[in-house]
Amino acid sequence: MKKIFALIAVFAALCMFGGCDVSSDGKGTGGQQNEPSKKDLYAPLNEMLAADYSKIGLTVTDTFDGAYLKSEYNFLYADDGSVTLQYAVERFAELSLPGASEGETPETSSDGMKVIYRGEAKIEDGKAVFSDGRQFSLPANIAQIGFTFKEEYFGNADLAGIYLKADVTDAEAFWGSEISCSDMKISATFLDFFYDITITYTAEDGSGVEYLYTFTV
């Protein structure tokens, strides 16, 4: 349950930056359940995904035209069951003639090319409530989307007891929802729980994307 609320907050944060498309619904095509297989070496990975973690971190690095944007999210689970999302998201800054822009000047990077949005959100009454008081309602299809590990989704896979490296040959199936990409690769480290999952791909617009998920029990 903690994780539902955390995900709500993340979607709400995305929508602040003008592009979050929550209508791209998760179809759960990866299946809610792993079908038992004689050689289902990937079943433990799906079980690990379902474990309780005290902290989940996510860093999204998007590389465009020699420049990159970094978006960081941290989900923190307190003993009282409350969830706090801390985020710091970079976007490229638009340029304008002096005096043309109005309002407060946001935080910028040292080279002035990026603006940085920081904040926190807590879940209250089924909504993500941000530090400036803005609220966002939870989307409906959260539970149906997400990774599913299956042998047939991967190529050139190297699965050992503590790591996985593979090409993701069926990205949409693995992702559980639509995703426009090519040349997706995955590497993960784990033991009884995931330590980290790194996913890279080339987006439809040609930009390079890297996801780094970190897990803390």
């Binding site: 994780k3 995900l7 959260i142 989307i145 992702w175 559980g176 929802s177 990409c181 996801y211």
Partner: peptide
């Protein structure tokens, strides 16, 4: 990209 990243862990 961020939207897709978070959808990736929806099943958590």
């Amino acid at each position: 990209a961020c939207d897709a990243a978070l959808r990736g862990i929806g099943k958590l």
